[in-house]
């Protein structure tokens, strides 16, 4: 019973984690960048100088200046205002898609990891099936069948990206469930639900938080790509991805930088900030050296096979 918890996310450790987070340069840079971007998009109704949907027919494709901070698009809408409102959509999709992943991934991962046996085999085969479909190929197929809309994009990203989370939760559960404190809890008759939520899930919360953070970044990237292809958020609603699709025209790409550089830069800054946050969480909460790239690695299944990090997937 003298065993220490591997992930110090309990209430007693929270103070220490916070202090160490605040000393981490990755956290400071990431949190600062994210706060600025989030504030700008959330305060869009007060900051945006124009309506995002109203075109000014007297200034079409106008370069920046003359009242329009970032110029106007092909039907005279203010690019800066659309950028602010578009950010809301991109962030909403990133967060909601992760919520879907959390629900599916944690439930299935918990079932597989706690019960093992047949349940584990079925869940793992299901995970492998979903992982065999290359993301963009199946995503555009689903978008083509079910139509392009904000909610479909959220569901598509959520349904295709939960596999990594399920494997992560399963791995954590497998290693945690045989630990002394869980055995002790079981032996004194603590209920199954209480063990799952109170003991297992809570101790796995560090890796889950790290994964979820990085998944928001991946969700924003996926939304941008789908909307760019015309299979995500549809006009007239603005999203950073569909603003970028303007640059599919060579004329815009060559001469009208204000139509595509700002949304692209916004995505990069947002995703970079979130990735920095994820790296900081990883260092402080999990005490394992890893990065968003490690997340990519685990999604491709490398970490399941290779001892890249002191793995959480060694059952």
């Amino acid at each position: 019973m003298t065993e220490t918890l591997s992930h110090s996310t309990g209430p007693r450790a929270a103070g220490g984690s916070l202090r160490r987070l605040l000393q981490d340069p990755f956290f400071v840079i990431g949190a600062a960048g994210l706060s600025v971007l989030l504030l700008l998009t959330l305060l869009a109704p007060w900051i945006a100088p124009f309506s995002p949907d109203e075109g000014d027919l007297f200034s079409i494709e106008a370069p920046p200046g003359d009242g329009h901070l970032l110029g106007t698009d092909e039907i005279g809408r203010d690019v800066f205002s659309r950028l602010l409102y578009g950010g809301q959509v991109s962030v909403l999709i990133g967060l909601s898609a992760v919520a879907v992943q959390l629900v599916i991934g944690i439930s299935l991962g918990a079932i597989a990891g706690y019960f093992g046996g047949l349940a584990d085999a079925i869940v793992m085969r299901l995970t492998e099936i979903v992982m065999c479909f290359p993301f963009y190929a199946i995503a555009i197929t689903l978008a083509a069948i079910f139509g392009a809309s904000v909610w479909n994009v959220i569901l598509i990203i959520g349904i295709l990206h939960w596999t990594g989370l399920a494997r992560l939760v399963r791995g954590e559960f497998l290693s945690l469930r045989e630990r002394d404190f869980v055995r002790a809890a079981r032996s004194i008759g603590v209920s199954r639900t209480r063990i799952i939520f109170r003991h297992l899930l809570r101790n796995a919360s560090g890796p889950i938080l790290v994964y979820a953070t990085l998944a928001v970044a991946n969700g924003i990237l996926a939304e941008a790509a789908l909307s760019f292809l015309g299979l995500g958020v549809r006009q007239p609603q603005a999203s950073w991805g569909n603003m970028l699709s303007a640059a599919q025209s060579m004329r815009v790409l060559s001469y009208q930088w204000w139509l595509w550089i700002p949304p692209g830069a916004a995505i990069v800054l947002m995703v970079l900030s979130i990735n920095f946050l994820g790296e900081a969480f990883q260092r402080v909460l999990n005490r394992r050296p890893a990065a968003p790239v490690a997340d990519l690695v685990s999604r491709r299944g490398w970490r399941a096979r290779l001892p890249v990090t002191k793995g959480s997937e060694n059952g």
Partner: peptide, 19 residues
């Protein structure tokens, strides 16, 4: 640099390189 590279959407990077 690795952090930046995984944060840039591939299609945006393509457009920057084309430009």
């Amino acid at each position: 640099l690795s952090f930046v590279l995984v944060s840039v959407p591939a299609f945006f990077l393509s457009m920057l390189l084309i430009k």
